[in-house]
């Protein structure tokens, strides 16, 4: 089965833009393709006129610190993230979330940029990027700019950028500071390659024994990824105690309204799991913030 007619591998951003322009909306960006090709196959329509693979553009494949910001190119694969000591120390939750995406083959090919551009409400990488308060650099209608990560999501599967026209270039976020830590956990059916039932990423900062700031993302809990404002507001200023974590878990169950997906989980089960996940993820993040240790957990080979 033929999925495309032409496959291009540009080596610069300008070249990629020129190709998209050349095809006038008939070419699509591919960055790993572990979702895109499945979709193309399922559509069973005419082969796509052209695919533009951005993973050979050097600028989009780097992981680095620049101007006191961590930068990750949109073409960086999940496994490159998993193997990065810089990210293990500064974005533990991102390493953990990228480490459970798909199986080894998918993680070798699939990219963080692809995960975000696909705009699913429960992309594992996304959940962590939201907790990290990341920004995405895009070229939208020819204009290059940074946008908050949540702005990338316009609806389920609906991205701010049009992948026949625009480009997602890089992500950036602040490195981990003193008393700061992150964690990611997810509930999934008992096998490695299914979609998650629920994912949760937490970023927090401790001042002594007090949680002074936090960011919490739980997905899917709506049509797009979201921060749980009520939970964050409650946490800030609370002692980093078991009691606080317990209360937070209960609060999360109260304020979030997950929906039933016929094949994956009922709303009841998801609501039950919000409590479990919040408790487990917060406990881990607090431990990390207290000890300064940041060893990613549950990451696949």
């Amino acid at each position: 089965m033929k999925l495309w007619h032409h496959y291009h591998t540009p080596s610069s951003i300008d070249e990629a833009l020129a190709l998209l322009d050349h095809y006038g909306g008939q070419a699509r960006v591919i960055a790993g393709g572990t979702d895109l090709l499945v979709d193309l196959r399922a559509e069973e329509g005419e082969p796509f006129p052209a695919l533009v693979d951005i993973t050979a553009i050097p600028e989009l494949t780097i992981i680095e610190t620049r101007n006191n910001q961590i930068i990750i190119g949109a073409g960086v694969t999940h496994n490159q993230i998993v193997r990065s000591p810089l990210l293990a120390a500064n974005a533990t939750c991102l390493v953990e979330s990228c480490g459970v995406v798909g199986g080894p083959q998918v993680r070798n090919v699939g990219t963080l940029g692809g995960n975000v551009a696909h705009a699913l409400p429960a992309g594992d990488g996304t959940t962590s990027l939201v907790a990290l308060d990341a920004e995405a650099e895009i070229i939208l209608n020819g204009e290059r700019r940074w946008v908050p990560i949540l702005e990338m999501y316009q609806g389920p599967g609906q991205s701010l950028i049009n992948s026949t026209h625009d480009l997602l270039l890089r992500f950036r976020f602040a490195p981990s500071g003193k008393g700061e830590a992150t964690a990611f956990k997810r509930i999934m059916r008992p096998q490695g390659v299914a979609l998650p039932i629920l994912g949760c990423a937490v970023w927090l900062r401790l001042d002594g024994a007090t949680i002074v700031e936090s960011r919490v993302c739980i997905a899917p809990a709506g049509p797009t990824p979201l921060r749980v404002g009520e939970v964050e507001a409650f946490l800030n200023g609370q002692p980093a105690s078991e009691r606080t974590i317990h209360q937070t878990a209960e609060l999360g169950q109260k304020v979030l309204h997950p929906r039933t997906s016929k094949y994956r989980a009922t709303a009841d089960y998801r609501r039950e799991m919000i409590g479990v996940l919040l408790r487990r993820t917060l406990t881990l993040a607090v431990q990390r913030a207290q000890t300064g240790a940041a060893v990613p957990e549950g990451v696949g080979m």
Partner: peptide, 11 residues
């Protein structure tokens, strides 16, 4: 097979 889950090597 994405929604009818059979065991994989991870299971």
């Amino acid at each position: 097979l994405s929604t009818y889950l059979i065991p994989t090597i991870l299971d």
